[in-house]
């Protein structure tokens, strides 16, 4: 029974998809990011073109599952700066959370904070981003840094599906000091954004975004 609860919770709980982490003004966005060691789910609402609030659950565990930690947070996303160019767009984002964390290597729940930053640059054919976030609680500090780059096979129009190849390097201090490299296939179609791949150890990874 506990395994089922953990499985369902971990499916519901997952995320840090690195495209724009919020939608347009007055829109909702639901995002999920699922892998063996990191699962996150977020739903946020864009109050303004630059500000969104939401709820995020994050589950992290070591490869051997000896340490597990789950955060439930109220999150705030802020578009700090955007550059709209004729053939490109670049952004700097602040993403922060406040809430509680629980884990199997400490007792009870602790208050947690998780400030982070993201920078991205995208054309119709190229994509690059960098992301850093720190999860802090009393006596616990985890950080996640990642970088992504990729290209699209072709320039797609608004109503066409666009496939991309994306490679991510990610280091999660709770899991390992080594970088996890994950190639992924990204598909964008209208309001759907899906990525699927596997890291070099063969562990699958799935992420998605949906705006509505």
């Amino acid at each position: 029974m506990k395994l089922w609860i953990l499985f369902i919770t971990s499916l519901l709980v997952s995320l840090t998809v690195q495209a724009a982490p919020m939608g347009f003004k007055d829109s909702w966005m639901t995002m999920g990011d699922f892998s063996k060691t990191f699962r996150e789910a977020t739903t946020n609402y864009a109050l303004t073109p630059r500000d969104a609030i939401g709820l995020t659950s994050t589950y992290m565990q070591t490869d051997n599952q000896s340490q597990r930690q789950m955060n439930n947070e109220l999150t705030y996303t802020r578009l700090l700066k955007r550059w709209n160019m004729p053939d490109a767009q670049a952004n700097i984002w602040f993403i922060g959370g406040i809430g509680e964390t629980r884990g199997n290597f400490f007792n009870g729940a602790k208050a947690t904070l998780s400030p982070g930053m993201q920078a991205d640059y995208e054309t119709t054919r190229l994509y690059a981003s960098a992301n850093a976030r720190i999860y802090v609680a009393d006596g616990i500090t985890n950080n996640i840094v990642s970088a992504r780059t990729g290209f699209s096979f072709y320039e797609a129009n608004y109503d066409e599906t666009q496939p991309w190849i994306i490679v991510e390097a990610r280091r999660m201090s709770m899991v390992s000091n080594a970088y996890e490299v994950t190639p992924m296939l990204r598909l964008i179609h209208n309001r759907f954004f899906v990525e699927a791949g596997a890291n070099l150890d063969g562990q699958p990874r799935l992420s998605f975004m949906y705006v509505y």
């Binding site: 495209a19 724009a20 939608g23 347009f24 003004k25 007055d26 829109s27 955007r82 550059w83 709209n84 160019m85 004729p86 053939d87 490109a88 767009q89 995208e122 054309t123 119709t124 320039e155 797609a156 129009n157 608004y158 109503d159 066409e160 666009q162 964008i188 179609h189 209208n190 309001r191 759907f192 954004f193 975004m209 705006v211």
Partner: peptide, 30 residues
Amino acid sequence: NGMVCAFCAQGIEKRISKMPATKAVYVDLK
């Protein structure tokens, strides 16, 4: 300017379509 991705440009179509005088909206990324 900046319109490079269909996923991110959804807001343009959705918001302008809701305006009372709008009959049709067309977004061309290229």
